[in-house]
């Protein structure tokens, strides 16, 4: 399943970068994440609770930041397991300042799904992915506002 797109965030490149590198912020903005625990240099244990229409499940697994390019982006590797199947996503994130002083976040990658998650058909799963992405950016913007305040 392909995962790609971009979004302009109303914050400076530097701020977006700092937020993306901050565990507490990630816990708040990544949809479903209930717990993020540092287990090593740029390695985290993640627990997520996803609830969407017919699907609800508890996911556990790891999150690794690789290929860290200071201020520019990194590659996010997420592995999450659950009773209804496992997800394994690799997503490259790139930041680019815009003329207005905002930041464009581009992401490009894909997720491998297995088990029931894969078998329920891509109709549901691509919708879930769209929806999670939308939530991620909404949360991000909200968090930018909150942290401003």
């Amino acid at each position: 399943m392909d995962l790609n797109g971009s979004h302009i965030l109303p914050a400076s490149n530097d701020r977006v970068w700092r937020m993306l590198m901050d565990t507490d912020t990630l816990t708040k903005i990544v949809p479903g994440i209930t717990h993020l625990e540092k287990t090593g240099e740029n390695e985290f244990k993640a627990v997520a609770q996803i609830k969407m229409g017919p699907v609800s499940g508890a996911f556990t697994g790891g999150l690794v930041l690789e290929d860290i390019r200071e201020g520019e982006g990194y590659t996010l590797h997420v592995k999450q397991n659950s009773k209804i199947g496992n997800a394994d996503a690799t997503i490259r994130i790139d930041l680019k300042p815009t003329d207005e002083g905002h930041t464009e976040l581009r992401f490009d990658g894909g997720a491998k799904l297995s088990g029931l998650l894969a078998r329920t058909g891509n109709r549901v799963m691509s919708g879930v992915a769209h929806s999670l992405t939308k939530q991620f950016f909404e949360n991000f913007e909200e968090e930018i506002e909150t942290q401003k305040a």
């Binding site: 017919p54 609800s56 499940g57 209804i84």
Partner: peptide
């Protein structure tokens, strides 16, 4: 008819 099939597949609990 949406919920019970989803429950049978154990998509939610």
């Amino acid at each position: 008819h949406s919920l019970i099939p989803a429950l049978k597949l154990r998509l939610s609990a």
